[in-house]
Design a protein around this nucleic acid. Structure first.
Lengths: 173, 173
DNA sequence: TATGAATGCTTAGGTGCCTAACTATTTGGA
DNA sequence: TCCAAATAGTTAGGCACCTAAGCATTCATA
């Protein structure tokens, strides 16, 4: 490793934050900005790693979440409900269901109660897929946070929740 | 708020984690799995919020990062260098530069040293854009983490770095 | 010196996510 | 009762990201 090796793009330095703030004569706290920047970088990293992880099982993060949510609800749910519980738009659910249906992991049935509505059901093949990936999935999830003790994980959960609550500062107004 | 209001999709519960693990007779630690799941959810949330945030200034997260990186290096850098420091593929840089060039925020010039290479330069318009968005950008970044004290932020940075180091557990092998 | 390997960038095609607009159906109020 | 508003789902178009494959140019070496 040379003294000038490439810095981790997900981990901007405090110096960098200080420099950026100074350039425009602002008064923001460099440490606070650094935390925000690191979190954004970590978020991107985690997202990409998640796609690789679920890709092993022929799924994506979105498709896995839809499948798991379906299983958690007796294997049957409307697209609108799925959109609400996954926190994505209905259009995204349409796309996810299209892909999962193509692979036979879910199926669409017209709703018996509402002529406008559909119901997405988990097929046997879909349930199988979830069962097959579970051991490796949970093992890897667990090893990801193995660098922290139980106490540290508790602290982390608390701090993370409080920052997540602050995310709306980015979007509000 | 009703007693059965929709749970935050980014915040799965410990109960949910326990249930999923139990369903397949596994022995994973529910708390560890919860931390991993919450982090993945937070990552997605932050990513979306970032797009909204930068969208205010006619940019995206990727385009902002490219612009800021360019400014940090004297306003001139090759696509390959940009890809390395942003942590994305060269193909992605091509797309980002295409968009930024269309809006006149950067320009492409052939490299004088390497006939194969380009140099991306920050235009005056691009530097203006960065200067205009800086006050609001840093203010919002700061408010995002305002729920934490300085000491808590330090702890958070440490814990986050150690979990980020564990991300490769999701991808390795 | 000539040629194959490495490098720089773009293109093509895929996925996920979004918003906005469109169709079909249901619901509710004048 | 009837018609407008709300709701369910899809489609269309956009952006960011990826990998793989394609050119062009430069480098290294036989």
């Amino acid at each position: 490793m040379t003294p000038h090796h490439q810095a981790d793009p997900a981990a901007p330095s405090l110096e960098q934050a200080r420099r950026q703030i100074a350039r425009y004569g602002l008064t923001a706290d460099p440490q606070a900005v650094l935390v925000a920047a690191r979190l954004m970088g970590a978020g991107a990293r985690i997202g990409q790693a998640g796609e690789v992880h679920f890709g092993r099982f022929g799924l994506s993060t979105g498709r896995y979440r839809l499948l798991a949510d379906l299983e958690d609800h007796g294997g049957e749910k409307s697209p609108s409900q799925l959109a609400a519980s996954l926190g994505v738009s209905r259009a995204t659910v349409t796309g996810l269901v299209d892909g999962l249906e193509r692979e036979g992991l879910v199926a669409r049935r017209p709703s018996t109660e509402d002529g406008r509505g559909n119901v997405v059901i988990l097929t046997a093949r879909g349930a199988d897929r979830l069962r097959e990936l579970a051991p490796e999935h949970f093992a890897r999830m667990q090893s990801m946070v193995e660098g922290l003790s139980v106490e540290e994980r508790t602290v982390f959960l608390d701090l993370l929740a409080r920052i997540v609550a602050g995310i709306e500062a980015l979007t509000e107004d």
